[in-house]
Simulated assay, not measured.
Amino acid sequence: MHRIAPGLGRATGGYHGAVTAAFFTGLALGLALIVPIGAQNVFVFGQGVSLGMPRALWAVVAAAVCDTILIVLGAAGTSALLDSVPGLRPAMLAAGALFLTYLGVKSLRTKPTEFDDETGTWSRGQVLRRTAAVSLLNPHAILDTVGVLGAAIAAQAAATRLPFAVGAVFASWTWFLVLATAAHALRRVMTKERRVWFDRISGLILLVFAGWLAVEFVQTLA
Rank of each mutant, 00 (worst) to 15 (best):
residue 7 G to D: 14
residue 13 G to H: 09
residue 13 G to S: 11
residue 14 G to F: 08
residue 14 G to I: 06
residue 20 T to F: 12
residue 24 F to L: 15
residue 25 T to N: 12
residue 28 A to L: 15
residue 29 L to H: 10
residue 31 L to D: 02
residue 32 A to I: 11
residue 38 G to K: 04
residue 38 G to V: 04
residue 42 V to M: 10
residue 42 V to C: 08
residue 45 F to G: 02
residue 47 Q to F: 04
residue 48 G to M: 04
residue 48 G to R: 03
residue 50 S to N: 13
residue 53 M to N: 03
residue 54 P to Y: 10
residue 54 P to E: 12
residue 56 A to M: 06
residue 62 A to F: 08
residue 62 A to Y: 03
residue 63 A to G: 08
residue 63 A to R: 02
residue 64 A to M: 07
residue 65 V to F: 12
residue 68 T to M: 15
residue 68 T to D: 07
residue 72 V to H: 02
residue 81 L to M: 12
residue 82 L to H: 05
residue 84 S to E: 13
residue 85 V to F: 10
residue 88 L to C: 10
residue 90 P to M: 03
residue 92 M to N: 01
residue 94 A to F: 00
residue 101 T to Q: 00
residue 102 Y to M: 04
residue 102 Y to G: 00
residue 105 V to L: 15
residue 106 K to I: 00
residue 107 S to L: 15
residue 108 L to N: 09
residue 109 R to Y: 04
residue 115 F to C: 05
residue 116 D to C: 06
residue 117 D to N: 15
residue 118 E to A: 12
residue 121 T to K: 14
residue 124 R to F: 10
residue 128 L to S: 03
residue 128 L to H: 04
residue 133 A to I: 05
residue 134 V to N: 01
residue 135 S to E: 06
residue 139 P to T: 04
residue 143 L to E: 09
residue 145 T to K: 08
residue 146 V to S: 05
residue 150 G to W: 06
residue 152 A to P: 00
residue 156 Q to S: 11
residue 156 Q to E: 15
residue 159 A to C: 05
residue 172 S to N: 06
residue 173 W to N: 05
residue 174 T to C: 11
residue 174 T to G: 15
residue 175 W to I: 06
residue 176 F to Y: 15
residue 181 T to D: 09
residue 183 A to E: 03
residue 185 A to K: 11
residue 189 V to F: 11
residue 196 V to I: 11
residue 197 W to L: 14
residue 203 G to C: 07
residue 204 L to V: 15
residue 209 F to R: 00
residue 212 W to G: 08
